[in-house]
Design a protein around this nucleic acid. Structure first.
Lengths: 238, 238
DNA sequence: CTCACTATGCACGCCAGCGTACAGACTTTG
DNA sequence: CAAAGTCTGTACGCTGGCGTGCATAGTGAG
């Protein structure tokens, strides 16, 4: 999908008008985002918004009994902090760095002010919001109807789309938390995919060998989400 | 929750500034919304937005194989047509009248123009959008982790919150489609709830007898969604 | 009153995914 | 190089929900 992996590239920022980008740029802080970092706890007021570049952030719900489920994922195509824009400031979900890397952050209030100018920046971010909604809705459907193996395929595809290479650093335990299933379920599904030569798995390093094959094994949910992102945000296509 | 059941009441409209409301009012068309009416097919461009008053509208995803799942529900607390505001115009979901009643509709473009004025109306609708997002996210989690019986409780509570009385007209078959489960699963769960004296079920007429009891049987998802609606849209509290 | 229809109830076998327990393989640390 | 820790693989019984097929009971039309 992408070509060279520019560690400073966030597609949403790139899609801004030059004037907007230039005004925002001095307020952007380039930061490291280590694996497992919690950017936002459930119910917390966000102080910053984040534009991942080489990192991936998961939005997850953690339930009273400790069970969890990922509801959406944000990478270099998006922004973390939509609730700021919508006016609620917080959400009941937690934001965790799922794949270590870098990104920009800026003060939430600054972006909120820009957003309230109701210009191209607002329109862009609202379209991104709709894409995010699609992802959540599709996750709901997928959770209801599809097997662990199908969901794993969807998840792998969504993840590598947001990275440059075809490799992910991620233990099966972590993936299980994201999908809200048992670790053993992931082991089994990943084993099957490896058997088929679609992926290579070794102690926290997954390499996707056959992207097309994965897409074929995946449920329709991946394509639906991808198509909506492409439709809503054509500017982001590389 | 509500007192008298005013068939012309939509809380979101009521929460508008008087000036905004007066400007919108002449463009509102009061319409009947019969059970099963499809207000919007997956991928269609919405021509109108809808403000239900006594009706309830389901947002559902229908999959390639025909299986379906509800991702959110809109009643007199909300609006159908968020994608118009966000700029995507359509979504991959279908909108179906789940409980017959009445509502207002207006030309989508008119509301879009009002929205783009970036005033109180926009802020209100964006907060509603966030509440809707919360509902979708919670549905995703609920689909993953909770039993049919728990989900039925959540669904019943969300539905009667959007109506005046404690009665719903809804066959088990329809509920099963909403929840994305087998009809027999609903039969079983509803039977159990009836056994406990929480509801009364008779050929498409459900009466909630013990609201507190239902809340106790329900998963946490109902309260999370309700709390977020109350937090984000305090103006809507009756 | 009868017939067709619709809504609900019930029973059976089946399977995906869960909970649990444990073993082996690889990695890091001292 | 040994020990401790981490990650992955395997096994087993259990259960919730599925698919299927069919029986009963209300309901409405003629």
């Amino acid at each position: 999908m992408e070509t060279a992996h520019n560690p400073h590239l966030n597609h949403l920022l790139e899609a801004l008008l030059k004037a907007d980008y230039d005004r925002l740029f001095p307020n952007l802080e380039f930061i490291e985002m280590p694996l497992g970092q919690v950017l936002c706890e459930s119910g917390d007021k966000l102080k910053h918004v984040y534009f991942p570049t080489t990192s991936i952030v998961s939005l997850l719900y953690v339930m009273e009994n400790g069970a969890s489920a990922e509801i959406a994922v944000v990478g270099n195509e998006g922004i973390l902090g939509v609730p700021i824009l919508l006016g609620g400031d917080s959400t009941p979900s937690r934001a965790v760095v799922q794949s270590a890397g870098y990104g920009y952050r800026m003060k939430a209030l600054l972006l909120k002010n820009e957003f309230n100018q109701a210009g191209q920046l607002q329109r862009l971010l609202l379209r991104y919001t709709q894409a995010l909604i699609t992802q959540m809705a599709q996750t709901a459907v997928c959770n209801r109807h599809h097997s662990v193996e199908q969901q794993l395929c969807r998840w792998l595809l969504l993840s590598i789309d947001r990275l440059s290479g075809n490799e992910l650093c991620m233990t099966q335990e972590l993936i299980a938390n994201m999908l809200g299933v048992r670790r053993e379920g992931v082991t089994e599904a990943a084993g099957a995919l490896q058997q088929l030569g679609l992926i290579n798995y070794h102690r926290g390093h997954i390499t996707v060998l056959d992207r097309k094959g994965l897409e074929a094994k995946s449920c329709e949910c991946y394509q639906v989400v991808k198509n909506e992102f492409d439709r809503l945000l054509p500017a982001l296509r590389v």
